[in-house]
Amino acid sequence: MTTETANRSETRARLRRAARLCAVQALYQMEVSGQGAAAVTRQFRDHHFGHDGEPGDYIEADEDFFEDLLKGIVERQDEVDGHISQVLKEGWRLSRLDATLRAILRAGGYELLARTDVPPAVVINEYVDVASAFFDAPESGMVNGALDALARRLRTDGP
C-alpha cells in the first residue's frame, strides 16, 4: 500500500468515525426533542459540519455516510430494534436503556444489518469507542457483547 493510499484510508476512517458519533448524537437529539430525521440532518449539515475555509469550530465528518446512517436507522428502526432485542440479556428491554445507549445500539445494529460494506469487527470497535466516550466500562462492555452477538446472527463474514 502506498503512502497516499494509506493516508486516504486513514482520512476516510477518521471522517466515518466522526459521522458515527454525530449519528448517535443526532439520534439522541431526535428522541429527546421529537424532531424528525430531515430536520436534524439539516441542522447538523448547517451548524455542526465544517467545510474548507469556514471559520469556527466545526466537526469534519463524512456527511453522506452520516446522512445514510441516520436515514437508514429511522427507516428500519423497527427491524433494527427487533434484532437488538433478541440479543439483549434476559430481563433487559431496549426501551428501558439510557437514550444514548439505545442510540449507539441502533446505529451499530443498522450498520451490521444494512452496511455490509463495513466489516463487523470495524462496526463493533467503532461503536464500543463511541460508548466509551459517553459511559464507563459496563456500558461499553454491554455494547460490545450485544453487537458481537448481533454480528454473529446477521453476518456470515464474522465479527
Rank of each mutant, 00 (worst) to 15 (best):
F135S: 07
G34N: 10
V122Q: 12
F66H: 02
R12S: 14
A18W: 01
L105V: 10
L150V: 07
D64R: 15
K71S: 13
T2I: 11
D64F: 11
G82Y: 09
C22F: 02
K89H: 11
A137C: 07
A18N: 13
Q77Y: 07
D98L: 10
F66P: 02
A99C: 09
I84Y: 02
M142P: 01
F49R: 01
M142D: 04
A18Q: 07
L97A: 08
R155H: 10
L15D: 05
L21E: 06
G50Q: 07
K89R: 13
A114I: 07
R20W: 03
L105R: 02
G91T: 11
I73Y: 04
A149T: 13
P159A: 15
L112N: 02
A23P: 05
F49C: 00
S33F: 06
S132I: 04
K89L: 13
G50T: 06
R153N: 13
F44C: 02
D57E: 14
R45D: 01
T100M: 13
P55M: 11
D64Q: 15
P120H: 03
A103R: 01
R14P: 03
A137K: 15
L97V: 03
Q25F: 04
R14C: 07
R76L: 14
A26F: 06
A114L: 11
V123A: 01
A107Y: 05
